[in-house]
């Protein structure tokens, strides 16, 4: 019952904050706050592959894009049908159903994309996997550029605003709890054993290919959800949002925060998202600042700001509720 209490409290707190958070922080900061949330979902999910399972993916923006466009496409084109079927509900209820249907489709599409990329490519190691994932991200972007139904190079506009602070941070809580529970289970131990020593993991009976694909798919699903939340917050999508630089920023987040730590990924996501705004006045030199930041962190904190430090370690506190 502790679990039910946790979720009710989370819903109440987020719902309460939604009522006045925008008025407190102002419209500009509100937007950044929501973007921070979306980036936390992306960073925490990417950390599952790059941090815990030790595989190097630089195609996370691809799954993010799949989710964003799927969700927006489903909602824009299925809006009438879904509103018709839920006509007995008030406007807010209809919007909720619409968003949840969109997010579900986004999660499935991104998960399937993860499976399709993961099965052939996760037999590859290190650099090779990185190149395949990079290529995948670009393929997705170029494909979208050429699909007129979602706006092609003009961008996809007319997406209804359905997501907000509440939905994004509910997504954050779901992502963090899911990834946390997963890495504390035998699945997490299998992921980390692959990172530490793949040969030994196989010898102890861990089917390494299967677990690599699994971590890839779970990670992609959350990237897809982040995409859907993003689409319905900004109400406009453009393929250039999903350039490989987006994947690159996500990698900076988890490296800066500390690979293989959920708290690290969250810290990194907050820091990098805020700094991207602060550095905006530098224009094209934004990336230079990040390069310097990365070099400094690698010199002074080679394992990231938080390292693999984590509040709760597996094994120390058995039988703890979520």
């Amino acid at each position: 019952m502790k679990k039910a209490a946790f979720w009710i409290a989370a819903l109440a707190v987020l719902g309460g904050l939604q009522l006045f958070v925008r008025d407190i922080v102002g419209a500009y900061n509100y937007q950044i706050l929501v973007l921070v949330g979306i980036n936390i979902i992306l960073a925490v999910s990417l950390n599952l592959i790059n941090g815990y399972t030790g595989q190097f993916s630089i195609g996370h923006a691809g799954f993010y894009a799949v989710g964003a466009y799927t969700c927006a496409g489903v909602v824009v084109y299925g809006q009438e049908a879904i509103r018709g079927a839920t006509g007995f509900l008030p406007e807010l209820g209809q919007n909720t159903v619409l968003l949840l249907v969109g997010l579900l489709c986004a999660a499935i599409a991104a998960g399937l994309a993860g499976l399709a990329v993961g099965i052939p490519s996760l037999r590859l190691r290190g650099d090779y996997l990185a190149i395949v994932t990079l290529g995948f991200g670009e393929i997705i972007r170029v494909l979208i550029l050429n699909v007129e139904a979602v706006g092609g190079a003009r961008g996809f506009s007319g997406i209804p605003q359905l997501s907000n602070f509440f939905w994004v941070y509910l997504g954050v809580v779901v992502t963090v709890v899911t990834v946390h529970n997963l890495v504390q289970s035998s699945y997490g131990r299998a992921f980390i054993s692959i990172r530490d020593d793949e040969i030994a993991a196989e010898a102890m009976g861990v089917d390494t290919t299967r677990f690599k694909v699994l971590s890839f798919v779970v990670s992609s699903i959350f990237a897809g959800i982040a995409g859907g939340l993003f689409a319905h917050f900004t109400m406009y999508l453009h393929p250039n949002t999903f350039l490989f630089t987006t994947s690159f920023y996500l990698i900076i987040m988890i490296v800066v925060g500390g690979l293989g730590s959920i708290e690290g990924a969250i810290t990194g996501a907050i820091l990098v998202t805020v700094l991207l705004e602060v550095f905006r006045e530098f224009g094209a030199f934004r990336l230079v600042n990040f390069a310097i930041l990365l070099v400094l962190i690698m010199i002074y904190r080679p394992t990231g700001l938080l390292g693999s430090w984590t509040l709760v370690r597996a094994g120390r506190r058995p039988g703890r509720a979520a």
């Binding site: 131990r189 299998a190 054993s193 530490d196 030994a200 010898a203 102890m204 861990v206 094994g315």
Partner: peptide
């Protein structure tokens, strides 16, 4: 293994737990 192949970043206990996952 001849050249030790433990899961270095995991605790001693977790190393043994990995083997029980099957």
């Amino acid at each position: 293994f001849q050249n030790i192949r433990l899961f270095g970043s995991m605790t001693v206990l977790e190393n043994v737990k990995v083997s029980q996952h099957m």
